[in-house]
Design a protein around this nucleic acid. Structure first.
Lengths: 191, 191
DNA sequence: ACTGTAGGCCAACGCCTGTTGACACGCCAG
DNA sequence: CTGGCGTGTCAACAGGCGTTGGCCTACAGT
């Protein structure tokens, strides 16, 4: 499946990367519709037609720009009581140090393909990690969805809508409040 | 302030209402950019120029269409232990029976003015209602923001992104899981 | 009955969009 | 040295957008 024979380094790799960087930034800041190919090309310092040559069309560019790896830690290898805090802390890091997640959220809300992409990340990355820590296997998807709802909701309030009290909370305060919630969603007995 | 002397019924009230209905639907379904004035006018069965005549421009139309009343119940008049369940249940109702909230969420994410509108609703409608139930007055904004983050997060997962496990939960399951979270955010001792 | 005005439609504007095709440069193989 | 291919620019396209102004129609006040 994932076996492109040699990576085959091309002379244009720098340009491709510049386009991708600019695209991620624009998609994160403006959402799918307002992030124009022309603006992305301008940011990358090249002609709009290069974007088409390398990524086919706007959808292809978005697909390439929203290749996301949450880099979730292995939860099995740590004391069960810290799972909530570790997850919240990890997501705060990811959200603050790069704008792919903001882009994913913004585009997921505006664009059907974007929403599917979010669902895919949820299914392929969050589900496996939470599988090991939930009491009953059949409850895993539901519990993961609950956890995701709280994490995305805080990201929405804090990084996208910028609701002042959510922005003003320190990182540690956010963790202190959210960790017990995530902990309960993933590990506590069903209500 | 809110004293337009007579309501002054106009012959065009039906048209105005049709435009507003169509606008709310389109903004909810498509977000700010994709919801075009032409499409809204087509839905309302009139000419695009009528929209301009009555609402000035697209921003004015959006401002009129996103006049939101959460219709939050008085929390002071009920047993303190039920606040979480009542709030979650109320928001589920609002979200399912009318698409203004979805519109608000979608536009809040794509549009700066939309985000400000969400913050305004938070400040003017959620804050006052939660003020009566939090232990310390100075914690009210933070606690309300936490509750908002969980409620918006679930709405995002369930009604916008349509993450399958979040969609599949019954209304009662959502309440059973979320109510204790909201309850804790609003009333429990700070962590 | 006459007239002013509000309600409504139509055609057009200037702008910006995604996308395309033709053309120019420079590297590398033969 | 020469040809081809990869990299890049430029100019243009068709279509959609928000917005504007002119014109027609029908009702309301006198």
């Amino acid at each position: 499946m994932t076996s492109e024979p040699p990576p085959a380094p091309r002379r244009s790799d720098a340009t491709r990367a510049a386009i991708l960087d600019a695209a991620r930034e624009r998609f994160a800041a403006d959402g799918y519709d307002r992030a124009t190919i022309r603006a992305i090309a301008r940011d990358a310092g090249i002609d709009p037609s290069m974007v088409m040559r390398y990524y086919g069309n706007k959808e292809g560019l978005f697909a390439a720009a929203s290749e996301i790896d949450l880099r979730l830690p292995e939860l099995g290898a740590m004391p069960g009581r810290h799972i909530g805090a570790v997850l919240v802390s990890h997501f705060l890091d990811r959200w603050e140090h790069d704008d792919v997640l903001t882009a994913m959220l913004r585009v997921g809300v505006t664009n059907a393909a974007g929403a599917e992409r979010v669902v895919k990340v949820f299914r392929e990355q969050l589900l496996p990690v939470t599988a090991g820590v939930c009491p009953l296997p059949e409850e895993v998807p539901r519990r993961a969805a609950l956890a995701a709802s709280q994490i995305m909701g805080m990201a929405l309030a804090r990084y996208v809508l910028r609701i002042p009290p959510a922005v003003d909370m320190t990182r540690d305060e956010v963790i202190a409040w959210l960790a017990p919630t995530i902990q309960r969603y993933l590990t506590a007995a069903a209500p």
